[in-house]
C-alpha cells in the first residue's frame, strides 16, 4: 500500500509540474495585468509543436530545439501583448476577455494549419527506468520534475531578487505608485508576457515529450491551469506551485484508489472542498 501511494505520488508529480508551469504563467499575467489569458494553453502547444518540428523536420537535437522554442516563446508572448492586449489595456475588462477568447481560436487554427491534426510526441530517446525498492521512475519523468523545479526556482529568483522582478511586483501592487517611483510601466507587460509564455512553452514541451500534443489539448490544459489558480489563490506564486502539485497528485491518487473513470471529477471536487473552507484558495490573501 505504501509503495502504491509513493508510486502514485511520483506519477502525479510529473503532471503536477506541468500544471505548476501553466498556472505560474497564468497567474503572472492575471496577477499583474488582470487578464485571463485563455490562449495560454494553445500557445503552450505551439511551443511543443515547434520543438517537435525543429527536432524532426529540421534535424536539431532536442536539447538544442528546446532553447530555440523558449526564445520563440518569449518573442511570441511579447508580440501577443503588443498586438492583442495593449490596444485594449485601458478599455473595459470585457474587451480583453473577448480578445483572449478570439486569440485562443486563432492560435488553435494556426497550430492546425502549421502542424496538422495528427497528435505528435516529441522524441527524446529517454527510455531508461530507475527502480528504487518497489518504485519505478522513468528517466523522462524524473527530468521533467527536475526541469519544473529549476524553472520555478529561476522564476522566483527573477521576481524576488532582480530589479526587473521588483518592478513587476511594484506594478502588481500599485501601478500608479510604480509610475511615480520611475518604473517604466510600458515594458513591464512585455516582460510579463514574455516570461509567462516561456513558462507555457516549457510546459508544452513537457506535455509533448511525456504524452502528446494534439489539437484541443491546450484548451484542457488551460482549464486545469485556471483551476490551479483558484485552488492556490489568485495571483499567488506560491499558491500556483502548491495548487499545481496538489492537483497533479490528487488526480493520480484519485485514479489509483477511487476510480480512473472519475479522475478529473475527483480533482475538481477536492478543489471545491478547499474553496468551501478557504474561499481565497490555499495561499491566497483574504479580501
Amino acid at each position: 500500500m505504501l509503495i502504491e501511494i509513493l508510486q502514485q505520488t511520483i506519477n502525479g508529480l510529473a503532471i503536477g509540474g506541468v500544471y505548476v508551469l501553466i498556472a505560474l504563467g497564468l497567474t503572472t499575467v492575471f496577477g499583474i495585468l488582470g487578464i485571463a489569458h485563455f490562449a495560454h494553453g494553445s500557445i503552450s502547444m505551439f511551443g511543443g509543436y515547434l520543438t517537435y518540428f525543429l527536432a524532426t523536420s529540421q534535424g536539431l537535437p532536442v536539447l538544442a530545439a528546446i532553447p530555440v522554442a523558449l526564445v520563440a516563446g518569449i518573442l511570441l508572448g511579447m508580440l501577443v501583448e503588443i498586438l492583442a492586449y495593449r490596444p485594449v489595456r485601458n478599455a473595459n475588462h470585457i474587451n480583453a476577455f473577448i480578445v483572449a477568447l478570439g486569440l485562443t481560436m486563432m492560435v488553435e487554427g494556426i497550430n492546425l494549419q502549421l502542424f496538422g491534426h495528427e497528435q505528435v510526441v516529441i522524441p527524446t530517446g529517454l527510455s531508461r527506468v530507475f527502480r528504487l525498492g518497489g518504485i519505478t521512475v522513468p528517466e523522462l519523468r524524473l527530468y521533467v520534475i527536475v526541469a519544473a523545479i529549476v524553472l520555478v526556482v529561476a522564476m522566483m529568483i527573477f521576481v524576488e531578487r532582480t530589479k526587473t522582478g521588483q518592478a513587476i511586483r511594484a506594478v502588481a501592487e500599485n501601478r500608479d505608485a510604480a509610475i511615480l517611483m520611475g518604473v517604466n510601466v510600458r515594458t513591464i507587460p512585455l516582460i510579463v508576457f514574455g516570461m509567462s509564455t516561456a513558462l507555457g512553452v516549457a510546459a508544452g514541451i513537457m506535455v509533448g515529450a511525456l504524452f502528446a500534443i494534439a489539437p484541443g489539448i491546450g484548451e484542457g490544459l488551460v482549464v486545469k491551469g485556471f483551476a490551479v489558480l483558484i485552488l492556490g489563490g489568485l495571483g499567488s506564486f506560491p499558491g500556483a506551485i502548491l495548487g499545481g502539485t496538489v492537483l497533479g497528485i490528487t488526480e493520480s491518487i484519485a485514479a489509483g484508489f477511487i476510480s480512473s473513470a472519475y479522475k478529473d471529477v475527483i480533482a475538481f471536487v477536492v478543489m471545491i472542498l478547499v474553496l468551501l473552507i478557504r474561499p481565497q484558495g490555499l495561499l491566497g490573501r483574504a479580501p
Binding site: E4, Q7, Q8, N11, G12, I15, L210, F211, A212, G216, I217, G220, E251, S252, I253, A254, A255, G256, F257, S259, S260, A261, K263
Partner: peptide
C-alpha cells in the same frame, strides 16, 4: 476494469493500481 478516455495520455495511475 480500469478506464481511460479518448483524450487520456497519462495511464500511470491506473497501471500503478
Amino acid at each position: 476494469r480500469e478506464v481511460f478516455s479518448l483524450k487520456d495520455r497519462d495511464m500511470t495511475p491506473q497501471l500503478t493500481k
